[in-house]
């Protein structure tokens, strides 16, 4: 047992380079998997709302018809569960952190006008098709009913 067991190491440390990095002069190097902040490729999003239902801190909102996806980055706890759940894989974790700000504000991403127009066109087409199908169904039913009535006579 002795005193100053650590003295030799402590002396050596005087001549070793520092282990800390001098941020911000030397930039921060994240790992590949670093969970920083969420980004979205908004044009891929189908507005299904899976991410909204997954989020444990209620940081997300989605408006399917308006093509809007909103995140409150200061509520987000960077758990990555939304990234896991998104069926279109349009969410990703960036390796840099959210910068500090004076208030807890929300950021809204809106789909580009072309994509929105395209989607509106598709919706209209689908609605038209559905209407046509419905009309055809009804016509068929009416014809069948008429045939049945004839037979009865």
């Amino acid at each position: 047992m002795s005193v100053l067991k650590y003295a030799p190491e402590a002396l050596k440390n005087l001549f070793r380079p520092p282990v800390t990095t001098s941020y911000p002069f030397k930039p921060f190097e994240p790992a590949d998997r670093t969970r920083g902040r969420i980004e979205i490729e908004i044009d891929q999003c189908i507005g299904c709302g899976m991410c909204v239902r997954a989020c444990p801190s209620s940081a997300l909102t989605v408006d399917k018809n308006a093509g809007k996806w909103t995140i409150n980055r200061f509520d987000c706890i960077a758990c990555g569960f939304c990234v896991e759940k998104c069926p279109k894989k349009c969410l990703s974790m960036q390796q840099f952190y959210q910068e500090p700000g004076p208030e807890k504000n929300e950021v809204t991403y809106t789909k580009s006008p072309e994509v929105l127009a395209e989607e509106a066109r598709k919706r209209e087409e689908a609605a038209k098709k559905a209407a046509e199908a419905k009309a055809a169904m009804e016509a068929k039913k009416a014809a069948e009913a008429a045939a049945a009535a004839k037979e009865e006579k």
Binding site: A31, R33, T34
Partner: peptide, 15 residues
């Protein structure tokens, strides 16, 4: 902590 960050993406909260 560096090993943890490398494998999980977080330093103290692994998720």
């Amino acid at each position: 902590l560096d090993l943890i960050e490398m494998t999980t993406g977080g330093r103290v909260i692994f998720s």
